[in-house]
Design a protein around this nucleic acid. Sequence first.
DNA 1: ATTCGACCCTCCCCCGGCGGGAGAGCTCAG
DNA 2: CTGAGCTCTCCCGCCGGGGGAGGGTCGAAT
Lengths: 288, 288
Amino acid sequence: MRTGLTIGEFATLTHLSVRTLRRYHEAGLLEPASVDPFTGYRYYTADQIPPAQVIHRLRELDVPLAEVKSILATEDPQRRADLVAGHLRRLEAELDRTRAAVVSLRQLLRPDPAELQVELRSVPARTVAAITGEVALGDTIAWYADAMAELDAAYPPPERTGPPGGRYANELFTGGNGTMTVFRPVARPRAAGRIEPLTLPPVDLAVAVHRGPHDNIDVTYGRLGAWVVEHALAVDGPIHETYLVGPRDTGEPAGWRTEIGWPVFRLTPPATGAGAGPEGSRTSGDGR
Amino acid sequence: MRTGLTIGEFATLTHLSVRTLRRYHEAGLLEPASVDPFTGYRYYTADQIPPAQVIHRLRELDVPLAEVKSILATEDPQRRADLVAGHLRRLEAELDRTRAAVVSLRQLLRPDPAELQVELRSVPARTVAAITGEVALGDTIAWYADAMAELDAAYPPPERTGPPGGRYANELFTGGNGTMTVFRPVARPRAAGRIEPLTLPPVDLAVAVHRGPHDNIDVTYGRLGAWVVEHALAVDGPIHETYLVGPRDTGEPAGWRTEIGWPVFRLTPPATGAGAGPEGSRTSGDGR
DNA sequence: ATTCGACCCTCCCCCGGCGGGAGAGCTCAG
DNA sequence: CTGAGCTCTCCCGCCGGGGGAGGGTCGAAT
């Protein structure tokens, strides 16, 4: 009787590389059946082949080693299946992201985009029902959906006085996380749950309308930004979005209309009346 | 007039991080419009926003930076679209791989697999028409399809005397590349193009039939390997496959039948007649 | 004109999951 | 006993980015 399969033989049987098997041992993913205490030689047995193959498959799905470990450690087949299903959902979400990027890329490479309509608008202060939070970039969509659902539930249609909107700190995009606010203008804002009344300060906005799903909304952002720069303005402060037509209004993303507004101020204030925004300084990073 | 947009402003406009912009500069992907020779400050212009967004999208699609660079460097829109389409094809292929892994994983986690039928078979030497090459793991499928097409073209049905097969070095799977041979038994093998007559040495094979597509064929490999180990045999030498029913026979992958054979020899040779294989030593790595 | 906070610079280390290679020790058949 | 071929550990590199240190610059407010 042999002591067991050497790592090389086991590698041949499982189609994993020797290095990879060593790594899995080191990570505690797949302990050899025995390890010679003197030589350090790893010895495997035939019944370790199935777990090795499960690991192989999970890695093909880019499941991180740590997660593979927790999946393998889960005895209950039901919970284990749940963990796997969770990762598959994430894969699916990523696939959606990829599809969206493909569509957006095509659009971006199209040579002649239609002219972008940009409007400069002074928005007075107003008080709305709002939910504010510190969110990581990847969680924005889920957080947004959740918060908006809470607002919708608290304020049924008769109380609403306009389309919902959001305000997003720039660091959210450039830094990976940041403050975001979603709000709804309503007749009488009141605090409840995460909702609290919020008075939005007056701002000068450069406003453009993005048509269609949000996958490539940053293209419109970019074009709006270019417009702003070319008109000798500078952007400052958090992005404003107003969902004129959104997922709550039509299930057809192509019909969505999102107004995006970027707070601006004049670089070299000419004779034109309105000066800088209320906060005056052009230091960014407000909204925290 | 400003010198241009600072890296921070440009980051805000494009939703890229400052660090990432610096990296793209360093990689030659997106040169700032100007760099202050004394301070090293990078300054961008509004017309750099579109290329930045193209880069952003390509990166979302996991296009390597080097490839992004070559795409951007390509002036001709036609060629550029080709490059992008090429990457999309690769994405699609990867997606197929992922789907296959999901299916295979489900199957692997199913608790009660049917018993695997394994047969020990002594295969005599035979001469076939073969194509041999050194192939990287990722290219196997394309290489296989190409070589098999060449064989099929050279030997129309009347000349064929059996189902086609292949012989694959183990390092192909464990090491990332290796020697593979595809062959067809025919009446009179002759050299032509890459095809050359090859005499396959006699081997003792442990043979099992894999049913269905090849995505999870290594599960069958593993089970065959376990069987071999449990029967006090050791595997040695390149894997043999025989395509009893393959893509050339039916478009329905579920109907495929692939015979896989693993050269074996007895670990403790008993009184039974047949000894080890013709090459004798159990050193692996033959087939080169 | 100076101050001072926000910005920008470069440089180095870290991550995950693998591969390559060095240098040394082990196994086992001839 | 020899020697080929295996195995061991350890260190470095890849990719695309993040974190942070330490120091220089910009420009609005004082």
